[in-house]
Design a protein around this nucleic acid. Structure first.
Lengths: 477, 477
DNA sequence: AGTAGCCGGTCAAAGGTCAG
DNA sequence: GCTGACCTTTGACCGGCTAC
């Protein structure tokens, strides 16, 4: 054990500097040290080539001697992990399980050290096992590797677009209370931004086009709600829409304000209490988006893998505070619930003629003709294997009740025939930019399948023929 | 531990640099410098090794156990030096700082002993930070907190009850395919077991009675689904019910089998891939149960705290596999989704007269007259503060659509008047044990508010008058 | 054939323990 | 409370195997 100094005793200065390392940086390091994979859990979560931390131990930030048991680590953490696994040690933290694990203090708490080993990607299966090592599979490289910076960029780009492209003044003092139409307009804008966001995620662009469509539809309502909640964090008792209208608890129409109250109580309040960071928001968004049990996915495993990465990124980003990661993930069920209620309200408003719902909202939010707008709904991600084959029974009571709720199970399990038809039409609708967002510039997607044709987008969403894209739902009305 | 110092020991300079820590041992540092003559470049260690040879302590001439902190020394001097440095002890010589330090008299003067340690070449830099305790782990188990063993006990007790109390053989080969009635019967049994389970959780028993009722209602459907999924893990393509009936993907009625497919695809499959443990199941159950955004809670913070504990327990139980905790929590949104679909099916079946839904199912699953059976729904946990005050608008379109879906928002946000009326009645219904579970013995709860009265429970659920307990929902039909 | 990467093992020298 | 005989843990270094 080299007590402190290496042969070259120049470390002394470094030492005093490292005494108080910004812990976040250490986290960042370990965060980049994404492990190869997580067993059967997820195929191959690509190992990220650690750009900055090069040869730092992802557990304690000491000098790493290579990858050991799945994580770049120093000899100390390597030996510690091996001994712990071999002897099946059950450590206990004498404090609150948030001990700092760095070069100086790594021996202070074995529980927290071991835990950080696991978090950094060490796997106990790698101990004592064969020497073969799967290191051949080490480079997933660019394919499907998520990173914080990528997510932040995607987020920033849509925010840029939002504030610069909208012709509506965003910073004037008095904000107008939104009416139903304003809400719909805002939702539409936000949905377009969601598409933009998704296109900035390389993993998304590499998915089959049908899967991309499915993902865009599946949780769009939750993204709207999450975005609204986030936007409203600085305010009290109002929801700030993307188009600068507000929804007030007291001053808005009843149907609208009911959802608003839930957003404030169940989402804004806990988000505020957690003081969620931008990074955490970005991760949450990706976690919601890449839902592997989204109905009709051709390649759910790829989606699961991306979500896994996002989930691990969030874990790393929120590691410093004990229990924080769990609290963040536990926002998702209420978010889903509120989102559904919003969709129901929208449905209702449309039925009553209070809102004009254009095709975009129809297809993304109301899940027209498909299973969209519902979380983890439908026959399941892998349903295409057979369970869906007996779909056509939907007709029995379905048509009667299908208008009951956009989340009606009969709809969700409806024939998947629409999948073959809808997606391409759908994507042609949502990818071009309507005039309402004049400054919005689309970057070409990496797959090149969708092309932005400047002349064709105007009013397209409204004018799109429904005959093909709404094969099922519209027959119910 | 190898101390990697070469013959060139530049510590002298370091020493003077490190002088600051207001340490009275500084005295010894300078003292140590004293013996050096003009040649301060000569390493101390090189000059120190006194005639005292390999296996003699260079401080007290006792038998040395090796090199410690830079000098061959015995365990006594080693420990003495470590303690002195660690505790920053300031000794004083009562004589003239010329005390003899040998095996016999080494404890006579700590000042002179420590000085001799330094002179022999011991360096305080070689003393490390305090480490973790090796043995004797004291369990700082706080009272009133959740624990794994508590959760496992609660789980085990309901399993015991289940297998011993049911008059139905559980291990015969051929299992019967459930019809709608069988499903309902199973659900009812499981809901009663859920109540039993909850009563084994001390934190639950300490909640206000209305909150206990609210929690029991809020996510009962998810518990049924989770239980079914868990029970079905060992099988393929079937759902095993608690009463030993099965739901087959192919052989069951359509409505039932649709939910079954989703359970299999979205829940059983990932749970199986994760190979979820009993402990993890137990934690998940508690996390689902203690939902702080359950509508109408008087004390959401207490519930949030319990869930936090459960969530942290799960984290600790699953931290050995990277990303596992997140994957487990991410089962909850699809679970919620499937649960709602099941409730909708149940509602539908009841509408069509296919199922006889008794009061228990009505109140716990369908959320009659309250917001139950929905996850994180309603006006929010803290809604009672004011948002609900303007509830009565529910009547507008609500009655028309309230049967649309058990999760209908209009219902969820309905007047909370029911809360004052329902709970106590409700709890009186679900706490006694119907005859269908003859062997089920209730343990008295710790609060003592509910008492098991053996003579009164028979058929109570069925016979309970609906007039009070279903003030809202039943008027819709 | 050589080298890089990762696993296993070793053991001096850290650490902690707990009667006395 | 300190001491020190006795035990555990740490980690720098090295040997060996596999893949490229």
């Amino acid at each position: 054990m080299r007590v402190h100094r290496t042969g070259l005793d120049l470390d002394t200065t470094d030492y005093s500097i490292n005494m108080d390392p910004s812990y976040t940086m250490l986290e960042f390091d370990s965060l980049r040290a994404l492990p190869e994979e997580a067993e059967s859990l997820v195929p191959v979560a690509a190992s990220s080539p650690p750009p900055s931390n090069g040869n730092l131990c992802s557990i304690c930030a000491d000098r790493a001697t290579g990858k050991h048991y799945g994580a770049a680590s120093c000899d100390g953490c390597k030996g510690f992990f091996r001994r712990s696994v071999r002897k099946n040690h059950a450590y206990q933290c004498r404090f609150s399980r948030q001990c700092v694990v760095d070069k100086d203090k790594r021996n202070h708490c074995r529980y927290c050290r071991l835990r950080k080993c696991f978090r950094a990607g060490m796997r106990k299966e790698a101990v004592q096992n064969e020497r073969d090592r799967i290191s051949c599979r080490r480079d997933g490289q660019g394919a499907g590797t998520l990173s914080i910076s990528m997510l932040l960029q995607a987020e920033a780009s849509t925010h840029q677009l939002q504030s610069s492209a909208l012709g509506i003044p965003c910073d004037t003092g008095m904000k107008k209370v939104a009416r139903v139409g304003d809400v719909c307009e805002s939702m539409k804008q936000q949905l377009l931004l969601l598409v933009e966001w998704a296109k900035r995620i390389p993993g998304f662009c590499e998915l089959p086009v049908d899967d991309r469509v499915a993902l865009l539809r599946a949780h769009s309502a939750e993204h709207l709600i999450l975005g609204a909640a986030r936007r409203s964090l600085p305010y009290n008792d109002i929801i700030l829409l993307g188009n600068d209208f507000i929804i007030s608890v007291n001053g808005s129409e009843m149907e609208v304000s009911k959802v608003a109250v839930r957003i404030l109580e169940e989402l804004v309040r806990p988000l505020r209490e957690l003081d969620v960071t931008d990074v955490e928001f970005a991760c949450l968004k990706a976690i919601i988006f890449f839902a592997p049990d989204c109905p009709g996915l051709q390649n759910p495993q790829a989606v699961r893998q991306i979500r896994f990465q996002a989930q691990v990124l969030l874990d790393e980003a929120s590691y410093e505070q004990r229990g924080r990661f769990g609290e963040l993930l536990l926002m998702l069920p209420p978010l889903q619930s509120v989102a559904w209620q919003m969709v129901e309200q929208l449905q209702l408003a449309r039925l009553l003629g209070e809102a004009s719902v254009d095709s975009l909202l129809q297809e993304m939010l109301l899940g027209e003709g498909a299973d969209g707008a519902r979380a983890g709904t439908g026959t399941g991600a892998e349903a295409a294997t057979g369970a869906v084959a007996k779909g056509p029974e939907t007709g029995s009571h379905t048509e009667v009740f299908s208008f009951m709720s956009p989340g009606d199970p009969a709809m969700a399990c409806g024939p998947l025939g629409a999948q073959g038809v809808l997606p391409n039409q759908f994507i042609s609708v949502i990818l071009p930019v309507p005039n309402s967002l004049p400054g919005l510039a689309l970057v070409p997607t990496q797959t090149g399948t969708e092309v932005y044709r400047p002349g064709e987008e105007a009013g397209m969403a409204q004018e799109m023929p429904n005959s093909m894209s709404l094969p099922h739902m519209h027959t119910c009305f």
